[in-house]
Simulated scan of single mutants.
Amino acid sequence: MINWNDLRVVLAIVREGTLSAAGRSLGVDQTTVTRRLAALEEGLDARLFDRREGRLIPTAAGEEVISRAERAEVELAALERDVAGRDTKPGGLVRLTSVPTLSNRLLAPRAGALFARYPDIELDLIAEPATLSVTRREADIALRLARPTEDGMIARRLGAILYAPYALAAVAGRADLPWITYEESFAAIPQAKWIAREGKAPLSPLRVNDGEPILQAALSGLGRTLLPVFVGENETRLTRLDDAVTSREVWLVVHPHVRRSARIDAVVGWIDGIFAALKKQGAVE
């Protein structure tokens, strides 16, 4: 009989590329990965991987096992969600992921209100620039800065975060104050596009890939930049240089099975309350 843990090893090898990396992702050593792979190959009487230039490449049999293992992974996650969704009171663990700016500057400072109302809720807040999969249960809830593309998910637009230019008050009057912008791989986001199109001053030699370092650079007096209004208005050392000039949509994503649980309802309601307050403050439209 095939062991699910052995199939997890196969998926880890495919996703990580090497036995050692697969072991790290699973929290086991390389010897354990090798042993489990060998046991699965022996049980199936088939070689699942060829080694080429230091990496493991699936054979035809391996591709078949991988395809079925991926389907099994999705089905097992769905089963877990179905059972977890039957709880009737707001309690238990919820995994919420979003980009670091939303996690650090919006959600974490307001988590106390969630726990005060629902003391049995536990929240794993995952500040992650990369997109974690709600489908594979890497997260229960996700906040995305673009329309989601995952099939079968419940997705709802929460609003659009407004961005305005800010600078350290002590240097805000300088006409030659440079613009701090994003590195090349982030050139398509609205803030970077606006700075490239409308920024009249030179660009700073510093380029970043996240909202937190761009905020810290502005606070150090290194230049001006675009910040979410809800961030800029809470930093007393900064001066707002103009009205909001661009925005980014925020979408809430939840798996339909998980959405039925009281713990998910509680966290979604808390998020809705945060965005309702931001709209009243003029930080979200």
Rank of each mutant, 00 (worst) to 15 (best):
R157F: 06
A169Y: 04
R105T: 12
I121E: 10
A139C: 15
R95V: 12
A127L: 05
A111L: 14
E122H: 11
D124Y: 04
A84T: 09
P119C: 08
D151Y: 04
I121N: 08
P100R: 05
R174T: 06
P178Q: 01
E138W: 03
D176P: 03
Y166N: 02
V171W: 01
D124K: 05
D87G: 14
R105W: 12
T101R: 13
V171N: 00
A160R: 14
L177F: 03
A164E: 05
G85Q: 02
R136W: 06
L132Q: 05
L125A: 01
P100Y: 08
A164M: 01
Y182R: 13
A111K: 13
A170E: 15
G173Y: 05
R144W: 02
Y166C: 00
Y163K: 02
A172N: 07
V94T: 09
D151E: 14
S133A: 04
V171S: 03
E128Q: 14
A113Y: 01
T181R: 11
R157P: 00
A188K: 13
A175N: 13
V94F: 06
N104T: 14
P109A: 04
A146T: 09
A160N: 08
E128T: 12
A84C: 00
Y182W: 15
A187F: 10
R144T: 11
R174F: 04
M153Y: 00
S98V: 02
G159R: 10
Y182Q: 10
A172T: 08
P190L: 00
L162D: 08
T97N: 09
P100K: 06
V171A: 03
A170N: 06
M153L: 11
D87W: 04
T135C: 00
P109F: 05
Y163I: 04
P165C: 08
L158R: 05
D87F: 04
R110C: 04
A108N: 10
L132Y: 05
D87Q: 14
P109C: 07
G91W: 07
